[in-house]
Write a protein that binds this DNA or RNA. Structure first.
Lengths: 197, 197
DNA sequence: ACCTGAACACCGTTCAAGT
DNA sequence: ACCTGAACACCGTTCAAGT
């Protein structure tokens, strides 16, 4: 125990008021710019729009992934939770499909997101690594359940499924003509994984 | 008719000796650097390695696509020809699969190639547009043939097939763990397109 | 005709100097 | 503690000056 009393704010969270405000401004700007330019958005543009020096930007978010984490982490965690509640509530195949629908909607929220997820999954030092991996594992449990029920091919694992779904999301970003057929491509792939009676 | 005689070299092809040598050097360097860095390789690096000024580089290849064209066009054309000869020689499904095998091998030759092909297909001003489109159309004819023979789902078109195959090639570039499963992902997708008896 | 390399407008990242 | 903005090393692209 130190001299710290109950009324002291948590030292880990204590921040000067201007620092807190700058952080919020950066995040606001980031949401806008990433929305426009995708996950590879210019960090300078974000700092500029936030009205903040580059040093301030880097002090708050030392890497691009640190910034993306605060934008994406919530969504990843939400999908992890949703997978588990679907596992308890819905039929195996329907649960998986419903989850994938939700996942795909999220993965097309920002341009470049599918690519960022793949990068973050193979980079253990990324602050997004853990939550993205947890989300994939949660999806993998839904997959396993559908496989055990005999509804999905047995020779597919969570990595395969995640890769295929991200591959479709990515390709849809590459050309408007493909984007228009995204749902169709998605169902072609999922039909292929489904065991027909 | 102008004063041009038969012994004049083709004025369109006439080039000073140093220009011809520089062009060859740039292409040599490009092959090496694109091999190392992918289709998004630094153009400066290529010019440097070729021992040539930036102006010279741009004089010979005014855009990145103009450079890629000379590296990739032959391969595209070869695959177009191969599609037509397979259509004449092999059973519909086998012909399609053999062609896709060949196509995939080519599309993984350089990192970023799948992305470049998608870009070039939606950019009519790209010098690669025509030959890439021709290749896709040649593949589409093999697809149609296999569909007419009842071996492939009827609700797939050449754009879908091309998109799916490129999506798998791209995803395999994103992580070594996925690269190791590339063949498996490819067969999952193709199985899905195949009509089972 | 062709080549060169500096110049320009951008990046991401770091860091000395300020408050 | 935190902020600023210049500095550095890159990039793609253009262009005046040379031969």
């Amino acid at each position: 125990m130190t001299g710290k009393t109950a009324s002291d704010p948590d030292p880990q969270r204590a921040q000067r008021a201007d620092a807190q405000r700058n952080r919020a401004r950066i995040l606001d700007a980031a949401r806008t710019v990433v929305d426009e330019q995708g996950t590879q958005a210019s960090l300078r543009d974000i700092a500029r729009r936030a009205g903040v020096g580059m040093g301030t930007f880097y002090r708050h978010f030392p890497t691009r992934d640190a910034l993306l984490q605060t934008l994406l982490c919530q969504g990843f965690d939400r999908l992890s939770v949703k997978a588990d509640s679907l596992a308890a509530a819905a039929a195996p195949e329907e649960a998986l499909m419903e989850w994938l629908r939700d996942f795909t909607a999220g993965s097309t929220a920002y341009r470049g997101l599918a690519a960022s997820m793949m990068t973050t999954l193979s980079d253990e030092s990324s602050p997004l690594h853990a939550s993205c991996l947890a989300m994939r594992e949660a999806g993998a449990r839904l997959l396993k359940r559908a496989q055990d029920a005999g509804r999905i091919r047995a020779d597919v694992d969570g990595t395969d499924l995640f890769a295929l779904v991200n591959a479709v999301s990515w390709i849809a970003e590459q050309a408007p003509s493909v984007a228009a057929r995204r749902e169709h491509l998605f169902s072609l792939v999922m039909d292929g994984l489904t065991r027909r009676p």
